[in-house]
């Protein structure tokens, strides 16, 4: 079973605050899924380091032409707080 500390470490990395109840809940649930996933160790696989999922005829490139986006207001309207047309984070005690 995944320890409480392990769950907290993952939650911190994922930036998720968990309640006490949730910590116990995810200890069980993560363990349950991770146990199941162990079956992959039975599969013999090639050691390729990169597996492509994109069709060969995809076109990942575009020409270098600047086209300004027309709906800036639509972007800023969704912001929780705005000051001087910048996204505003409240004053905070420390920087990370």
């Amino acid at each position: 079973m995944l320890s409480r500390e392990e769950v907290l470490k993952i939650a911190k990395l994922a930036r998720l605050t968990l309640t006490e109840d949730e910590i116990g809940f995810y200890q069980k649930q993560l363990t349950r899924v991770l146990d199941h996933i162990q079956d992959l160790n039975q599969v013999l696989t090639n050691k390729e380091a990169f597996v492509q999922h994109v069709p060969v005829d995809a076109e990942p490139f575009r020409e270098d032409v600047a086209v300004p986006f027309a709906n800036h207001d639509g972007l800023m309207k969704n912001a929780p707080a705005v000051e001087n047309n910048c996204f505003l984070l409240p004053a905070i005690m420390e920087q990370n």
């Binding site: 300004p68 972007l75 910048c86």
Partner: peptide, 20 residues
Amino acid sequence: ASKMFCRCPNQYGSSPNTNV
């Protein structure tokens, strides 16, 4: 002329959040 993964102008000194 434009950014790496989108068509916004790659331009210095524009007013905030206009090349987005």
